[in-house]
Design a protein around this nucleic acid. Structure first.
Lengths: 198, 198
DNA sequence: TTTTGAAGTCAACATCTGTTTACCAGCGTT
DNA sequence: AACGCTGGTAAACAGATGTTGACTTCAAAA
C-alpha cells in the first residue's frame, strides 16, 4: 500500500465543517492542557487541517480560544439551561456536578477555568459564571439581591469546578476513578448544606 | 540622579539567598499564571538576577518548578501540619480553607493545581494531595481504609482548591472580594456536611 | 468548457523561549 | 598583592511558536 493509514477520502471541501473540526479539537486541547500549553499546530494536526486555517477562521489563537469559550457557554446554557428552577433540587444539581468529566457540566467548567490572559475571554468566562451562580441562588429560593446566598452559590460552583479539575488531572485515588454514582451522595450533601434555605 | 530607581546597594553575593529569591519569584509566577504561561525570564526579572542562574541552581525550568512544589509542600506540612487530629474541628478546617488566598493553604493549593506535564512534579503533587486527604479523613474520625470517607475528604480538598482558584482568578463578585469572615460560615457547613461521621 | 472565487496548502517570517558557553567581578586565602 | 574560587552577567544558539502572504486545487457558476 502506498499510504500508511486507512485512507480517508480527501475530505470534501466545507468551510463550516472544517471550522467546527478546529473548534472541537481546540476545546479538547484547551480543556485538557490549558491555553498556554497548547500550540496551534497541535490543534490543526488533531483536526487534520493546515495551521493557517486557524488564522483564517478565527483570526488568531486568542480568537479561537474565545470561540471555544462562547461555544462551551452556549452549549452549557442549552443543556444545563433555563429549565424551571423548581426542578433544580439538590439531587439534580449534584447529579449534574457528578456527571462524566469528559463532557457535560464538569467538562465545561474545566474549560471555563482556563485562562488566556485575554480580556475578552475573561468577560465571557465571568459572564457565564455569574449568571450561572445567580440561577443557582434562585434555585435555592434566594430573593434577588441576596448576597449571602449568592456567595454560597458561587462556592458551590467553585467547588464543582475544583472537583472536576482534580478528577481529571491529578490521578488521586479514589477520587479519580470514582463513578458518577459514588459522587452523588457526597455532592448532594454538599449542595444541601450550602444552598439550604436560611 | 544617575539611576532611575531608589538605588539598592548592589546586593551582596550570596548563593543561598539568590536561590531563595528565585524560588519565591517562581512560586508567585507559577501560582498566578501557571507553568506554561510563565517564562524563565519573567522569573529572573522579578528576582532581579540573570536568567542563567535558573539553569545553574535548578538545572532547568522543570527543576525549578519541582523545587517550588517541594517547598510549598514542606511549608504546608509545617503550618497546616501534623497537629493532633482532635483539634481539627470543622470550624478549624473551614478557617484554613477560608484563609487569605495570597498565602496559607489556599495559596499552596492553587500552586498544587498547576501542571507542568513533568512526571516528577506530578508525583510530588499527588503525594501531598493524597496524604492531606488521608489526614482529613482521619480527622473526621474515619477508620484507616474507609474508602467512602476518603473520597469525601478528597471532595473537600478539591472544593477548597476550586474555591481558591476562582477567588483569585475570575473576579466573580461577591466571591472575589469576600472576606475571610464571610467564607467561614458556608465553608463550615460544607465541611460538616461532607465529613460528618457516618 | 471555461471561468472564478473560495478552500486549502506551503514555506517563510519574526519573535519568543529554554539553555549553554564564555567571560567578568567580588571575596577570602596565602 | 597575587591567586583562585565562586557568584553573577552577557551574548548567542537552537528550536518552537503565532502569523502572514503567495501559491495551488477544487467545485460550482456562466
Amino acid at each position: 500500500m502506498t499510504t500508511g493509514e486507512t485512507e480517508t477520502p480527501p475530505r470534501r471541501r466545507d468551510a463550516a465543517k472544517t471550522r467546527q473540526l478546529l473548534l472541537d479539537s481546540a476545546i479538547q486541547r484547551f480543556t485538557r492542557d490549558g491555553y498556554a500549553a497548547t500550540t496551534v499546530r497541535d490543534i490543526a494536526d488533531d483536526a487534520g487541517v493546515n495551521v493557517a486555517l486557524i488564522s483564517r477562521y478565527f483570526k488568531s489563537k486568542e480568537g479561537l480560544f474565545e470561540a471555544c469559550l462562547t461555544s462551551s457557554v452556549d452549549e452549557m446554557r442549552r443543556t444545563a439551561g433555563d429549565d424551571t428552577p423548581l426542578n433544580r433540587t439538590p439531587e439534580a444539581i449534584a447529579r449534574q456536578i457528578a456527571g462524566p468529566c469528559s463532557r457535560g457540566v464538569p467538562y465545561h467548567l474545566v474549560l471555563l477555568l482556563r485562562s488566556s490572559g485575554d480580556e475578552a475571554a475573561d468577560r465571557i468566562r465571568l459572564g457565564l459564571l455569574h449568571s450561572y451562580s445567580e440561577r443557582l441562588a434562585a434555585a435555592a429560593g434566594a430573593a434577588p439581591g441576596d448576597q449571602d446566598m449568592l456567595l454560597r452559590a458561587q462556592v458551590v460552583l467553585a467547588a464543582a469546578a475544583g472537583i472536576a479539575l482534580l478528577r481529571t488531572k491529578a490521578g488521586m485515588e479514589p477520587l479519580a476513578s470514582a463513578t458518577e454514582a459514588d459522587f452523588v451522595p457526597p455532592l448532594r450533601d454538599l449542595v444541601e448544606a450550602l444552598l439550604k434555605p436560611r
